[in-house]
Design a protein around this nucleic acid. Structure first.
Ligand SMILES: [Zn+2]
Ligand SMILES: [Zn+2]
Ligand SMILES: [Zn+2]
Ligand SMILES: [Zn+2]
Lengths: 141, 141
DNA sequence: GATGAATTGTTACGTTATTTCCTAACGAGA
DNA sequence: TCTCGTTAGGAAATAACGTAACAATTCATC
C-alpha cells in the first residue's frame, strides 16, 4: 500500500487501475459515481464494476479518496496533509456538487467521549453536510 | 403531513402505505433495506419499490424514521421526543445492527459555525458511527 | 525455471434507487 | 356541474450501486 501523501502528485506506488481511477476522480472535481468512472475508463480497457470498486477501496484506505455516503460517490481528498485519525467532515453542495473538506477536534472528542460512555468501540465516523455553497447561493438567490 | 410525536403509536395521520412501511421498519428493530421492506409487504399488496421509497421519504420528513446513509437502510426513530432541528447522531453496530441515537448541541453548534464561516447554507447533516456495541464486544472479545 | 503472492480480468448476480407514465380521489372555485 | 390543481397510489422499466466466485496474468524471489 503506497503512502498517499509522500510523492504528490504522482503516487508512483499505485497500480495501473488505481492510477486510472484516481485520475478520473481527480479530474471530475466533484463526487463521481462508480459507474460514471467505469464509463469514463471503458475506452482505456476497464470493463467491469469490480475493477472500479477494488481500486476505489484501495484509494480510500490510503486516504487519497473519500466516499460520500449520502450520495454514493467518490471524491478526491483535497487536504494538503494526511488526516491523522481525524474524522473528515465533508460539505457537499446540492446544486453544483462542490465539496469542502474540514476537520474539528472538538467534534471528534465529543463523539469519541460519547461512544466511550456508551461502551461503543468506534470503527468509523461519517460526518456530511448537504449544503448550498456560496457560489450557488449568489447565482440563484 | 402528520405530527410524528403527537398520538404515539398510532400516527393516525399516516396513509395506508406509510403505516404499513412504518410498521415493518419498527418491527425490524434494526436498520432494514427498502427491498426487504418490499418483500415483507408483498403479501399485503405492495408491489413496487417506488411505493416503499415514497412512504419512507414521507416518514423521514416527519422525523419518524431515519435513513442510515452508511448502510442504505432505514430505522425507526427511537427518540421519545421530537428533534427540534437537532442533528441526529446514529451509532450502528457492525455486528448486530443495533442503533443508538444521540444528540449533541456542541457538535451542532460547531458544524453550523463552520458552515456559516464558509458561507454554506446547510440543508441536512449526517453523523453516523460504525461501532461494535457493548453486547457484541462481550460476546466475542 | 519453479513457486507463491498480488493484481487483474470476466461472468454473473443481487441490491438500491429513480424515472416515466398513468390512474383515482378530493376540494376549490368558476 | 365542470374544470383545475393537488395528493396519493400503481406499474414497468431502467439506472446505479455493490459483491461473489473463479480464471488468468504479472511479478518478485528463490
Ligand atoms: Zn481528505
Ligand atoms: Zn454550489
Ligand atoms: Zn430520531
Ligand atoms: Zn452489536
Amino acid at each position: 500500500m503506497p503512502d498517499p501523501h509522500s510523492t504528490d502528485p504522482a503516487f508512483s506506488g499505485l497500480t495501473k487501475n488505481q492510477s486510472l481511477v484516481l485520475e478520473t476522480i481527480a479530474k471530475a472535481r466533484r463526487p463521481i459515481g462508480a459507474y460514471e468512472i467505469l464509463r469514463e475508463l471503458a475506452p482505456r480497457g476497464i470493463r467491469s464494476p469490480v475493477q472500479i470498486y477494488r481500486a476505489v477501496n484501495s484509494l480510500i484506505q490510503c486516504g487519497i479518496v473519500h466516499k460520500v455516503e449520502s450520495i454514493n460517490a467518490f471524491v478526491r481528498c483535497t487536504d494538503a496533509h494526511p488526516h491523522h485519525g481525524q474524522t473528515t467532515i465533508l460539505a457537499i453542495c446540492d446544486d453544483c456538487g462542490t465539496v469542502v473538506e474540514h476537520h474539528d477536534e472538538t467534534v471528534d472528542r465529543r463523539l469519541v467521549a460519547w461512544a466511550k460512555q456508551e461502551a461503543l468501540e468506534v470503527n468509523a465516523v461519517t460526518i456530511e453536510l448537504k449544503v448550498r455553497c456560496a457560489n450557488c447561493s449568489a447565482l440563484a438567490p
